[in-house]
Write a protein that binds this DNA or RNA. Structure first.
Length: 426
RNA sequence: GGAGAAGUGGCCGAGUGGUCGAAGGCACUCCCCUGCUAAGGGAGCAUACGGGCAUAAACCUGUAUCGAGGGUUCGAAUCCCUCCUUCUCCGCCA
């Protein structure tokens, strides 16, 4: 959520920056709502002040034993007027708030301006794609004989669900273990196990609601009528919200959290895209990194976090490139995002495997997460998140990049301790 | 699932209808005194939002907030209803 003060002070400037990311801010509607709000709020507060003053006077008069009937009479018809004013003010503020909740974050000034994915800027490439002396297969063809089972997945749960069996299931687990061990032991993150089902207000905090409800899985509790809850679409949600509604001490920052969790996405808007294989699933595992930092440190943290994600690919010796997303391709809450794209030989291209973003105070404002700074003032923290990495897509990359002509797959060195010393999937 | 108790500022804790945004204590900040690793005196010390205000800070002023949401009342931390959370006992369970 943007700072409403900023919109009040510089509406056109904000609108211009939002336009860079393809969001048309209805400035006239905002200005009209604000104008009305100001008048209504002033009036409501005046009425409240009058009521308070008179009520106080009644109390004082009573304690002196005076007759309170005259004051009581003067306050008689205040009630209805005040109630009406309070109600319309509340309705108006709901409207304003709802508008605010639907506005995406402002892009950072260093972000390239562009319309869509074609405007992204490549920052660097690491590693050299391997030259194959045989015809490369994609991960579906390599993996199916080794335990990748799309048919059974579909039988149980429909399209975009997959069963992993045997050595492939173990490799998947090994990847997750390796990732979370690296993030905790080498990069200093605290491992967290979180709920996978969360309350709606948590999703408002990180920005999935109200705008992206269609991307989520909703759940209802059996046996009783309860509040609707949601399956997390990333553990960024649960990790970031661990600090919601709190004032942190300056020396608690930075907070670095990581979790290995499943992620559930309805993929409502992507029918027909990436239908083959593991690339786009309703359920996939991810090791997520989250940092809660002091505002002045968030861009330094962003670069550092990108390094923490890159380190995983480097240790796995998977070629990748880093792109800076342009204004038009960034997510709703981000001011700046780097995508890590891993080389997939069968597609002969780089595919997203990690996304690292700074949200500045956008989520913190929604979550009411603040830090008491050196001046003793509460200020909103900055939040960052990044994948370190998406486990399913990493499995895809390992299968494809490490495939052999005979249909076996070599296990990357760093994973062998997690695979009981096995060096090959056969 | 059943029975009971409780939720007040950074922390502890008083407060059962009126000058209570809230005693007292702890912690913290500043000043004075003292002169030594301690004590004494004084002051300050919640958050959000609005208005003054034309940008920021400061300041003044108003409003809201005592787990959350409703209600009663001229007036609610206090009374009523619903919900949430925590604790104790019983039951069940991995």
């Amino acid at each position: 959520m943007l700072d409403i003060q900023q919109l009040r002070n510089d509406l056109d400037g904000v609108a211009a920056r939002l336009a860079q990311r393809g969001f048309a801010l209805d400035t006239a509607a905002f200005a009209a709502l604000e104008h009305e709000r100001k008048a209504l709020q002033t009036r409501t507060q005046d009425l409240q002040a009058e009521r308070n003053a008179k009520s106080k006077a009644i109390g004082q008069a009573k304690s002196r034993g005076e007759d309170v009937a005259p004051i009581m009479a003067s306050v008689a018809n205040l009630g209805d007027e005040l109630k009406a004013a309070e109600q319309s003010l509340a309705a108006l503020q709901d409207k304003l708030n709802d508008m605010l909740l639907h506005i995406p974050n402002l892009p950072h000034e260093s972000v390239p301006v562009g319309k869509d994915e074609s405007g992204n800027v490549e920052l660097l490439r690491w590693g050299t794609p391997r030259a194959f002396d045989f015809e490369v297969k994609d991960h579906v063809d390599i993996g199916t004989p080794l335990g990748l089972d799309f048919e059974t997945g579909a039988k149980l749960s429909g399209a975009r669900f997959t069963v992993l069996k045997g050595q492939i299931a173990k490799l998947h687990r090994a990847l997750a273990q390796f990732m979370i061990d690296t993030q905790t032991e080498v990069h200093g993150y605290t491992e967290v196990y979180t709920p996978y089902i969360v309350n709606p207000e948590v999703l408002f905090g990180t920005g999935q609601l109200p705008k992206f409800a269609d991307d989520m899985f909703r759940v209802e509790r059996g046996g009783e009528d309860g509040q609707t809850q949601y399956l997390i679409s990333t553990s960024e949600i649960s990790l970031t919200n661990t600090v919601r509604d709190s004032v942190l001490k300056a020396d608690e920052l930075p907070i670095r959290l990581t979790a290995h969790s499943p992620c559930f996405r309805s993929e409502a808007g992507s029918y027909g895209r990436d239908t083959r294989g593991l690339i786009r699933q309703h359920q996939f595992d991810k090791v997520e990194m989250v940092q809660i930092v002091a505002p002045e440190q968030s861009y330094q943290a962003l670069d550092q976090m990108r390094g923490h994600a890159e380190a995983i690919l480097q240790k796995l010796e998977l070629p990748y490139r880093v792109v800076t997303l342009c204004t038009g391709d960034m997510g709703f809450g981000a001011t700046k995002t780097y995508d890590l794209e891993v080389w997939l030989p069968a597609q002969n291209t780089y595919r997203e495997i990690s996304s690292v973003s700074n949200c500045e105070a956008f989520q913190a404002r929604r979550m009411q997460t603040r830090v008491k700074n050196e001046a003793g003032k509460n200020e909103l923290v900055h939040t960052l998140n990044g994948s370190g990495l998406a486990v399913g897509r990493t499995l895809v990359a390992v299968l494809e990049n490490y495939q052999n002509a005979d249909g076996t797959v070599t296990i990357p060195q760093v994973l062998r301790p997690y695979m009981g010393g096995v060096d090959k999937l056969a």
